[in-house]
Amino acid sequence: MLHRRILQFLLIYVLGLTSLLFIKYVLKLSDYVIPGPQGLSHTVSCVFVKYFFDVMNTLSVAVIGHIISVCLATIVGIIGRLNSWAGSFVKVAAYNIQAYPIVAVAPIIFILMGDGISSRLLIAAVICYFPLLLSFIGILSEPVRDIEHFYEVTGRMSWRLQVKIRVFENMNKLATVIVGSATLAMVGTIVAEFIAADSGIGYSIRIALYQSDLSKVLVALFLIGICTSLWLTCLERIGYLIQNHFRKG
């Protein structure tokens, strides 16, 4: 699983890089527009270690933000599954608010909360929160009648049991959504750092852009891709182990 994902990323990266170099040499562009191999290798030797730690910094914020949003989506999803006014309200609110572009709200978050870790965390969490929430509400609101019926008619049903049944029956869907939203958490954190933070790889990319240094951006993209692939593989593995633990018969 891991080597396949990394191989896929490397293939895409190398293809992209080759295309850029091809354009550079065909159009005879300077290193200022597209860096050459020499410039790239020099940049790698200069910034690789620093950028690696920047990516780790971003990744840690993304992971925490992702965990927060999964917890939040679970709580709201549990409320949203109710047939009461609270459930309906949460559902309607979630469907409406999710259409709001979080990046547009990000500047307000930075003004209110400053440019420290809390803003990055909040934006990362919020960016991956809505897709998660919609899936969680959908899954937790959808009865699994063939299983729930027995508990309903025998009066054994509790909200915990209901949630457990629905989560268990939709484990594959949930795992896919969680892995998918993990990418969004990473993207959200980078965007947040790009807009206003003072650390992380998004911040480094912003500085590189100020300096019109595409080679730094390419190194950053490489590290982001590799680290994100590793993280997604980890998540998939965890999901697989959880499912396997319950399903082994």
């Binding site: 063939d146 299983i147 019926h149 025998t154 049944i165 268990f168 029956e169 399903r247 018969g249």
Partner: peptide
């Protein structure tokens, strides 16, 4: 009690 033939028991227990 109403029971029917497509019912299942939760997958987490044998």
């Amino acid at each position: 009690l109403y029971s029917y033939n497509l019912e299942r028991i939760p997958g987490w227990a044998c």
